[in-house]
Amino acid sequence: MNLRNSDRWVPRRRSTRNLIKAHSLIGLFSAALVVVLVITGWALNHNDGLALGARHIKNDWILDLYRISEKPGVQEISSQGLVLATIDDAVFLDAIFLLSTDDTLLGIASYNDVAHVFSSSLVRMYTEQGELIETAILPATISAVGALIDSTLVLELEGGGITGLSLVSFQLELPSTSLPTRWQAFAKRDNPSYPSIVAGWRERRLTLEQALLDIHSGRIFGSIGVWLVDLFGLLLLVLASTGLIVRFRRRRRRSHQIR
């Protein structure tokens, strides 16, 4: 609709003119970010339908941005013929993927064909096929895992002291024989026992869901990105308020003109 010059509202106050300028500039800057947020938000809302968690990003630039190395650092613990390996937060028993966890793993023990994977307060029990039998809370917090003597696993208690955990009764008890002094510890392996866990690791590391979530929250640019998104949120608040103030002033002036 074309407005005649006489109909066009020209603010008289300088503060209002500045407000409109600021409103336009913020609006322009925000528009691009709103588009990004809306598209990523829509996609994440339909995460299951779009199977975003099952799609992996293979773009080198993005993978480099995430510092996902082409040669991941593999750490291993070997005990009783089992190899527990970790790559970042992924845990493998022999070549079988078990889980992703932020827990610090301390050791492994096999008893009655059940693999017991220990962290400081939890033990996860797996079948030989890598199926989780149970996650149990330990009777005490531990800091190291030793050897299995009969059915008792030697453990170092957090804060000091050595004890044993019966893998039958799941009670703390001292083993019958003398305690070993060698504790299990992860060692870095340039040539992992099961090279198959490394093959294609980089391409399987980042899902589309994670990338979209990080874009949506700003985390893709690290902690600064989060602050930028926060700042953008604040700008939207400013946009809303400047818009309201300008509208309020315009209406007030018009009502004055009518009178």
Binding site: S120, I137, T141
Partner: peptide, 9 residues
């Protein structure tokens, strides 16, 4: 959950 064992006990 750093003190899970104590919580359960």
């Amino acid at each position: 959950n750093d003190n899970l064992a104590d919580e359960q006990s």
